[in-house]
């Protein structure tokens, strides 16, 4: 049903990341995906710094990464006749990020039906037991075929 998870990672990168200006600005990289699971990396960059004294990446860049991974994780279980829209997103920040470290985000779809989805995500610097942020989001499922809606 869904051709999306069968895409080679390189094609996935082109289709879901390189086509989106904000994702190019954050230099996001798709690193793993399955049905209802997705992981992206966001390399450290000077333009993402939220505290020039420490070099940490700003929390809002991490929020953007989380939103991106959650929404696209849902897409791995849908076909191209559907898109998603974020309804709400809660993010709890656990600690500061470190200068120079790539930030990884993994998201898992907990529930998906015809109307909405619930997704949980974790952002970390390579060690899941020491997360930067944890997040839960609710998403609307939008049919692109008028007749189907």
């Amino acid at each position: 049903m869904s051709a999306i998870i069968d895409m080679p990672l390189e094609k996935f990168q082109t289709y879901f990341i390189e086509s989106v200006p904000q994702y190019r600005a954050l230099q996001l990289r798709a690193v793993a995906r399955g049905a209802g699971y997705l992981a992206y990396d966001m390399p450290w960059a000077e333009s993402l710094v939220g505290d020039p004294a420490s070099g940490e990446v700003h929390e809002c860049a991490i929020t953007t990464l989380i939103d991106a991974v959650c929404a696209t994780a849902i897409q791995t279980r849908l076909d191209r006749n559907f898109r998603t829209a974020t309804l709400d997103l809660r993010v709890d920040f656990m600690r500061k990020s470190r200068a120079g470290r790539t930030i990884s985000c993994e998201a898992e779809v907990l529930r998906l039906d015809a109307d909405t989805a619930v997704v949980r995500a974790l952002a970390h610097e390579g060690e899941k037991a020491d997360p930067l942020a944890i997040s839960t989001g609710s998403f609307a499922i939008i049919s692109l075929r008028k007749a189907a809606s």
């Binding site: 904000q22 929390e59 809002c60 929020t63 953007t64 989380i66 939103d67 991106a68 997103l89």
Partner: peptide
């Protein structure tokens, strides 16, 4: 992007 709207709010 929703993330940049979040940044405006933040």
């Amino acid at each position: 992007h929703g993330g940049v709207v979040a940044a405006l709010l933040h």
